[in-house]
Design a binder for these strands. Structure first.
Lengths: 117, 117
DNA sequence: TATTGTTATACTCTATAACTATA
DNA sequence: TATAGTTATAGAGTATAACAATA
């Protein structure tokens, strides 16, 4: 399923981790690179090339918070991209849910949510 | 969840892929390295160091099938290890299932099964 | 003293090409 | 001609240590 999702994201020129980071930024304006790393279990050091790639694509920008921290946010292009990505994700999720027989369907999300909360 | 599973396997000195390969061998006696690769989406070339590691640990052995193929099987030590591993996996699965509220529980496995079949 | 961002680097994992030998 | 096993190697991803600057 994750491999299939990666293929759905490829036309958007995003890797799975890129989309995940961008969603996190979209939902947490001015979040820092270190905070993203803690949230997603990515080493601080490895955030550098990851964010550079997304920044070079013009999708995110940095805003100084204080002398040592910088907040991340989506550019206009980044916000437009995320609208498309969210639509892709919603479509993918809908397709998956549709595979589940009706009598089980309403139980799936609550069960998964309970599994790892 | 996968990260937690990796930690459960660590005391057995097995990585996730090692345990997966050994389970496949246990359930498919004399399966070939190439067949395992096809089943698990692992390149033939990458099976070489993977199997060498498990073989060096004395857990699997090779039996010539014909001039070019060799069947893989668990050694006595490998079978003993898999008994422990299966117990660990069963315990892990039971712990996960126990997290799911009763009214959803019986629906989880059928729903997951339908999701990607 | 702890944290942020960064650089450098070693290590692991994976993909690819090529080769030999056999079915 | 296709397949099995193997070798060598490039590339991507990750972990680790260290550093300067700032909270």
């Amino acid at each position: 399923m994750m491999a299939a999702l990666v293929k759905r994201l490829a036309p958007h020129d995003l890797r799975l981790v890129d989309a995940t980071v961008m969603l996190l930024i979209a939902d947490n304006p001015l979040i820092t690179a270190s905070a993203i790393g803690r949230e997603l279990d990515i080493q601080r050091a490895n955030m550098v090339p990851l964010l550079k790639r997304i920044e070079d694509a013009g999708l995110i920008e940095r805003t100084p918070i204080d002398g040592k921290s910088q907040g991340l946010s989506l550019t206009a292009a980044g916000k437009a991209k995320m609208l498309e990505v969210r639509a892709t994700l919603d479509r993918f999720e809908a397709e998956l849910i549709a595979r589940v027989p009706e009598q089980h369907r309403e139980h799936l999300i609550p069960a998964l949510d309970a599994l790892w909360r």
